[in-house]
Design a protein around this nucleic acid. Structure first.
Lengths: 164, 164
DNA sequence: CACGTGAGGTTCGTTCAATGAACCGGCGGG
DNA sequence: CCCGCCGGTTCATTGAACGAACCTCACGTG
């Protein structure tokens, strides 16, 4: 979201959360961080976001403890990693109600079953730790052709850096 | 979020979802709808949002099929109701990482157990249908004193209208 | 009927964030 | 020493959010 960016009068933890991840672009940045994006230039290439805005968002995410800066890499903190259910649930909602076909699939690395809307593996019927989720390109992918999109299309685990 | 409001280049269902519920105030409006708020003036009293923005958001939520207009009431559609996991997960994340104390509690109407982060009842260990979730005021409530906040502080089920 | 009142908006000028292009500094080769 | 890239910052412009004022219809009186 934007402008005013705070919901001061709102007496609610949802409002607090939105102050941190509710601004425009922020949740897409977090999503990319789960996908293994870490460098400023990679976020920039993958999201079509103005450099100034990206800079501001990364800073505020670091400040609020969602990301940590490690050299030139931005990596998710434990607090940030706990946003996965949020990102996943919202993405699945969008997929079911707004998209024709999924453009990315999340798969349990152990058994190959797809991760359900509740975050559990369809096959194993167990909750899956973040590190055991693999990301695959889905049928609906419209094939952006920046270098980062190409790297993201090759299957890999969440959080695993897309660069060596 | 705001400005540009679309993420056109993003080939992703999360981006699609954010185009619908990602703008500033939108998710708080949806939250209030779950809490039983239905009238324009009640949203207005409870959120401190400019009338013009509220009007625009409600219209766009109706247009995208999250809300439906029934007379002067705005009510969640089935598609809208499926946003509950998103709202709940994000609120719990905010509560755990950003709030001192929860200001609202979600309770399984059947057994009185608290609804966990995964949406299941802590006591019953079963997923709970939306209609069986009760909302109670939590210890962290800072007591806004508009009429709507006062109505919301009395325990009731999700979706149950706060007005007769 | 005239009149007031409240709900549900719309209009409009101001403010402030998003945008995008240009600029800047560090550093790692060649 | 020079070149180019990475990771930003600066700045003018655009457009959304804000807030106050206004409008309109429905209803309830006197």
């Amino acid at each position: 979201m934007a402008l005013g960016k705070d919901y001061a009068a709102q007496d609610c933890s949802l409002a607090r959360a939105l102050e941190v991840v509710g601004e425009r672009w922020t949740l897409l940045i977090v999503r990319d961080a789960f996908y293994g994006v870490r460098r400023f230039s990679d976020f920039l290439a993958h999201l079509d976001v103005p450099r100034a805005v990206l800079s501001a968002r990364l800073q505020s995410l670091v400040e609020s403890g969602v990301l940590a800066k490690d050299g030139h890499d931005y990596v998710l903190t434990d607090m940030g990693k706990e946003l996965w259910p949020v990102v996943h649930t919202l993405a699945r909602w969008g997929e079911e109600h707004l998209s024709a076909e999924p453009c990315r699939l999340f798969v349990h690395a152990g058994c190959g079953g797809r991760v359900g809307t509740d975050g559990a593996c369809a096959a194993c019927d167990r909750r899956i730790p973040l590190e055991d989720v693999e990301i695959h390109a889905g049928p609906g992918a419209r094939h952006r052709d920046d270098p980062v999109s190409r790297l993201l299309r090759t299957p890999h685990r969440l959080l695993e850096p897309i660069r060596p």
